[in-house]
Amino acid sequence: MSGDHVSSVISARVRRVEDLLEGRGLLDAGEIDRRIDEFAAGGSPANGARVVARAWVDPGFASRLLADANTALGELGLSMSGGLQEQRLKVVANSAAEHHVVVCTLCSCYPIALLGPSPSWYKSEAYRSRVVRDPRGVLREFGVELPAETQISVWDASAESRYMVLPRRPEGTGALSEAELAGLVTRKGLIGTALV
């Protein structure tokens, strides 16, 4: 069976379930399309990048972000309430002494409300099984080589909090604007599998 064929069979099954639920009053007409549109317009790594850039230029904001990320997000008009329920966000800051990396070993918990959907590698068994046991080896696969004296802290999102990494500001960026700094930040940087 080709992949396209598998896809068309499951597409038909999903449509059938939607029709059946609509018939039973458990879905409104157009509700699924509306939710898909809302989701597409929701979180993206650009939100996380804005948060990071603000923290780099405003030490007061950085302290508030690390102490109570949900409240600090509000200063930028962002929130963790875009998903099923408002979630607690914990931001962990990289330093010369400590590098943080985030995983969900039990499923695929991720700050979707803020960052949008996670990449497939984040949801893979390969990442989830290995990063808690050998983070240095996993980071090396991502091209991140840390000094031996840098402590690595892995955060497993096993309950209700979601995590985001605050990367270190790269050297030589003193002249950049906040928007230009945000442009340096990648999704992997927010997860901890890239330096920025």
Binding site: R133, S153, V154, D156, A159, E160, S161
Partner: peptide, 25 residues
């Protein structure tokens, strides 16, 4: 109540110089 609890990798896997912080009821 839920807590962030930090473990030394050596206490979990018998090896590793990192820590793993798990969120636990």
């Amino acid at each position: 109540a839920v807590y962030h609890v930090r473990f030394a990798a050596t206490d979990l896997f018998g090896a590793g110089d990192h820590t793993v912080t798990v969120e636990l009821w």
